[in-house]
Structure formats: structure tokens, C-alpha cells
Design a binder for these strands. Structure first.
Lengths: 338, 338
DNA sequence: ATGAAAGCGCTAACAG
DNA sequence: CTGTTAGCGCTTTCAT
């Protein structure tokens, strides 16, 4: 393995000069620079980023703490899309990504901060974290710059990117209201998810603004899981047959609701309107295709990476970025005829 | 940031002793070990893996060169599943993963080997590479241990994991033959993909064993893309209406074929049987649901990581792992009535 | 059982 | 424009 020392010897100069030449400093004569460059190529030199990182105290690497990189979460491509977005931006700005082992089956024995510090990542992006994660507070207190996805913390060195979940939910519910629905239930995710809370807010507000009083019993939690969504929907519809529309906090659960409705013999959208959230790939393929709130997950990742790197390079202050959403009307919603 | 030096000072011992204590060497008195351990915790010490990597010349990190981590490839979750599998195994064996920027839009100016060497990864996993990739040869010649997914190179330090593509294809085609089809076309991916070649072999062999002569004109390439699959299928069916079944080298293309058939007014499976390959998520949701060859992509990633790490730790020789496939019969295939 | 010293490959004052 | 020197944090002989 060639080092700058080897190059220095071969070129008859000092390692300092080699280092400077290779890093494009101006104070090297054109002649020696050329010689060094050629030698580097000839000797097949690659810089040792560990050594460089050690002395410079930064690694041009950002750490990824994603909780959804596992067998189960392949169904919505959310984690994947976030990852793609991050990867794309990091690529462009010439950062590498390291994936941390956080979702290991074995006990998580290291904290986020430890993970980041050990690897000397310059910053971190955290996604899919629950609001009661014991290590979350740590992140804020630590001095490692980081950006959170869909989790609202800001501080001197933590930024935050999300979508306008409240407004998104409102769009969904308003759509139902405009179709003449008044008895609108909600299948939410779980209370530990920030997005759930916001989507609930949007639901509540939309109803309120339309002068519809909302019923606590009509709001259930489906843990963002398809099966749970189905079960909850069945329970809900059996107990309160007057419900004519359901707003689901995720498409995956909405898919479950569709199944549940089918089992109960309620036709969607004739007997029941369903609107989901996320616009995952399957939403367009379900039967019927799902009306949903579309968010650009790829952008979410991209913007997170961009913000973090800009923070690292001092060109941007940590702040919050909120992306928009869009109502996509497909065939799971229809006019209320009751 | 605490270093072993700080601990040494606080404990009144040398850095050597601290290093030994922290790494569980036996030649440290129980008393000092305890003192050091406590101090480490107290001072919130994290080892600097860069420094350690520098001296030990290994980093407990494996490099990932995946070509499909981008916006476009969210539709089949193949890349994601591979990634999940790798991540799971790496987690278990306590390795971290670094994602390299290979699919950047800007010119790829670094070779695989350079990427790996710069980052000092212990080994690499390569997925989604084309057979004509200019940098592929490099990998084999370099001394970096690596394992390739779905690409058949083996050498002193490169292993290889794949599924039995030939047999898988045979299963698909045999299924069609058993249903009474004789005029079976194939929509393949592209000639630069190893799996395409193998799946074609399986197709050919199955026909041959059934005493059916195969027609070159009935084999087309859809580049593994949905739209191209559709177009190719339309062209094929218009020109050769006698075709009663199509074997597609991927589900995504099969989805396209389904659309194409619909446009031509050919009902699937009554007028045309279609079998796909991969068993992606959408396969179960298409209309009609797709009969396909299922492969365990997660396992593919898992096994790749396992093999690589075992190679790195000297417990396994580089070799090839071939995983099985399974025919999943859904509703896109039926008896031939022509 | 412990320490002194060297060195991994690189960058960064500082001096000339 | 170039070299000398020091040092990033850690592990590892080699002594003691």
C-alpha cells in the first residue's frame, strides 16, 4: 500500500510537499506538483482517510441511524426512499454514509452518541425514532451536529426536517367533508410517533372548522401496521356502523382497512370512503386504488442530508424544513349518500 | 473528548495499561482494571476507531457498492431487501457498513478499489453490477476481500452469492408447459446481466427437455423495466399472436406485460399466461396477481455479509453460495385452451 | 503487572 | 517554494 512517504522518497521531496501537492495547495512549484501527481498515479496511491481523519478531526462521513432497515419494513418503501434521498445528496456533496447497527436483535448496548463518536462521523441523521426513545435526549445534549427526520427538536446543533403533517391530514379530512361525509373516524399510528400527533391535530381541526364535533371513540391506533389497521377498522365499523369514512394515518393501515371493509361486506367507496397517508407504491395498486396524501419521502431524505452537510460546513444554521403534501384522489373515496 | 491519555492521567498509570485494561487483556491487576473501567465510564470515554483502525490496519467496516440506491429503484424493493439482509447480519456480527457513492450523477471518478482502500474497509459487497463494468476486473485483481451478489466471480479473495437462476427459470417454464402451453415467449432483462443469461438458459433447457423447439424471435429484452416490458410484449404479441404464454425475467416487466396484454385486449390468464420472476411485493397486488418465481432477497444479502465476514475472520474460504427459488402460483397463469 | 517508546499515515505550524 | 518537527489516539514490542 503506497503512502505519501513512498511518493516523497520516489520524488526526492518531503512528505509535506507531497501532502500539499496532493491537496491542491498553491505553494508548490508546478514542476514538483506534476512529478508528484504522476508518481501518485504510477504507484497507485490512495490516501488513507483514517489517518487524515485522525489529524483533521473530521471524516467527511455522516452517520445514519435508521430504525426501519429490516425485513419487516420492505412493504412501505419509506425507509428506502429516505435512504435514497440521503444517499443522493451525500453523493453530490461528496460525503460517505455509515449505517449504524441500531436495530440489532441483540441488546443495544451503545448510545447514539457513542456510536457517532467512535466512528468520528461529522454529523448524523436520525430517522424512525420514537418519542420515548431513551437515547434521544442524549442527541440534543451532545455536541454532534445532527438532523432529525420527523421529530421536532431544534437546538444549537440539531436541525429537523418533516412534512406538514397537520395540513396534510386536514387536506385528507376536508376532502371527505367535501364529499359530504360527517361521520369520519380516524385510524392513527401510535402515540409515540410525532407524525401521529400532528395528523391527529389536522383531523381534529378540519372537523372543528366544519362544525363537526369529534368523537374520541372514533379514534383508534393501528400501530402503523396493516393487520392492526384491519382489526381496528373492523372493531370500529361493527360498533359504529354509522361511520361512512375513515382517515388512516398511513397507507399500509389503509390497506388493512380496505380488507377489513371487504370482510364486513362494506363496499369501498360506495359504503365507505377511505383515505390514506404517504402515497406508497401499493396505494396505486390496491383494490380500489387508494386516495391518499402524498409526501415526497425522497425529498425528505435529500433535504435532511443537505441541511446537515450545510450545517457541518458552516453555511447554514440548524433550522426546521417543512415539506408540503398533496392530496391524490384515486378510487377509495366517493360522495356520501347516507 | 476523553482519550486514553486522560484516563491514564486520572488513574495514575500509563496509556499502555489503560489500553490493555480496556481491551480485556489478562495481564492487568484486577484493581487497576476496575479503577480504569470506572474512570472510563465516568469520563464518558469512547474509543477513537480511526486511531485504532490506523494502527491495527482494520476497521470492522464493510463497504457497500450498490447501484440501485436511487429514486428509480423503489418500485421493486430488491435493493432495499439486499441492504436489509446485509445490515442484519453485519449488526449481529458487529460490523458497520459504509455506503459508497457509486451511483452519483456526476462522473464516477474513483474506482472500487480506491473507494475501499481510502476508507480502509475490511472488505466489500458489490451488488447490481453489470457484466461489462470497467471496474469489475479491478476487484478481482485487488487484494480486497469481497463478495459479489449475482455475479459469478470467484478467486482467492472474492466469493459470490446468488440464487439458482437457471433452475428457477426452469420451474417457471415447466409450470407453463404443464398447463399445456407450447408457444412460450420470453421477455428477458439485458445481456449484461448475469441473471438474464442464466434465466435464459433455464428457459431454453425446459423447452428442450419438453421437446419444444425454441424460437429466437420469441426472446426479447425489456431491460428489467416495466415500460419496456410492456412495449416488447405488445410488439411480440402483435407479430406472433400464436404465443399463449410469456415468461418474464422480472416481475416489474411482467407487470408491464400485463398492461400490454390489456391494451391488446388479451385477457390474462384466459388468453395469455404470464409468469414473472422475483416475487416482489407488487406481484401479489397486481391484477391479476402474478404467478412468479420467488427468491429470498433478504437472505441473499444476509448470506453475502455472512460469507464476507467469515472470510475476513479467516473462518471461511471464499466460495459460492446458491440459494433456492420457489414457484408461487397466483392467478396470471391458466390451462392453455388453444 | 506495568511503563517507555515507537510508529500507523497524515496534516499543520513554523522556519527558512 | 520547501523541509523540519510535532502530534492526532491508539496498539504493540520490549524492557523492567
Amino acid at each position: 500500500m503506497t503512502t505519501i512517504k513512498d511518493i516523497a522518497k520516489a520524488a526526492g521531496v518531503s512528505v509535506t510537499t507531497v501532502s500539499r501537492a496532493l491537496n491542491g495547495y498553491s505553494d508548490v512549484s508546478e514542476k514538483t506538483r506534476l512529478k508528484i501527481m504522476n508518481l501518485a498515479k504510477e504507484l497507485n496511491y490512495s490516501p488513507n482517510t483514517l489517518a487524515r481523519g485522525l489529524v483533521m478531526n473530521k471524516s467527511k462521513t455522516i452517520g445514519l441511524l435508521v430504525s426501519g432497515l429490516n425485513r419487516e419494513s420492505a412493504k412501505d418503501q419509506i425507509t428506502f426512499s429516505v435512504l435514497s434521498g440521503i444517499n443522493e445528496c451525500a453523493s453530490e456533496l461528496d460525503y460517505d454514509l455509515v449505517l449504524f447497527n441500531t436495530n440489532s436483535t441483540k441488546q443495544r448496548e451503545k448510545t447514539y452518541t457513542q456510536l457517532c463518536r467512535e466512528r468520528r462521523v461529522d454529523g448524523a441523521i436520525i430517522q424512525g425514532i420514537k418519542t420515548d426513545d431513551p437515547y434521544l435526549q442524549e442527541v440534543v445534549n451532545s455536541d454532534i451536529p445532527c438532523v432529525l427526520i420527523d421529530y421536532p427538536i431544534q437546538s444549537e446543533n440539531v436541525g429537523h426536517v418533516t412534512t406538514d403533517n397537520k395540513l396534510g391530514a386536514k387536506k385528507a379530512v376536508n376532502h371527505l367533508i367535501e364529499l359530504g361525509h360527517r361521520n369520519i373516524a380516524m385510524v392513527n399510528g401510535h402515540s409515540k410517533a410525532f407524525v401521529s400527533n400532528m395528523r391527529f391535530e389536522g383531523y381534529r381541526e378540519a372537523l372543528q372548522e366544519a362544525g363537526i364535533s369529534y368523537k374520541k371513540e372514533w379514534i383508534v391506533n393501528g400501530r402503523f401496521e396493516e393487520e392492526a389497521g384491519k382489526l381496528q377498522a373492523i372493531k370500529l365499523l361493527e360498533k359504529y356502523p354509522e361511520i361512512t369514512a375513515i382517515f388512516s394515518a398511513s397507507d399500509l393501515m389503509a390497506l388493512g382497512i380496505l380488507e377489513g371493509a371487504k370482510e364486513l361486506g362494506r363496499k369501498v367507496p360506495e359504503d365507505l370512503s377511505v383515505v390514506g397517508y404517504d402515497d406508497i407504491l401499493l396505494a396505486g395498486y390496491s383494490n380500489p386504488p387508494l386516495t391518499t396524501i402524498s409526501q415526497n419521502i425522497f425529498q425528505l431524505g435529500y433535504q435532511a442530508a443537505n441541511l446537515l452537510i450545510k450545517m457541518l460546513e458552516g453555511t447554514l444554521e440548524p433550522h426546521v424544513i417543512t415539506l408540503g403534501t398533496k392530496l391524490v384522489v384515486r378510487e377509495s373515496t366517493a360522495k356520501n349518500h347516507k
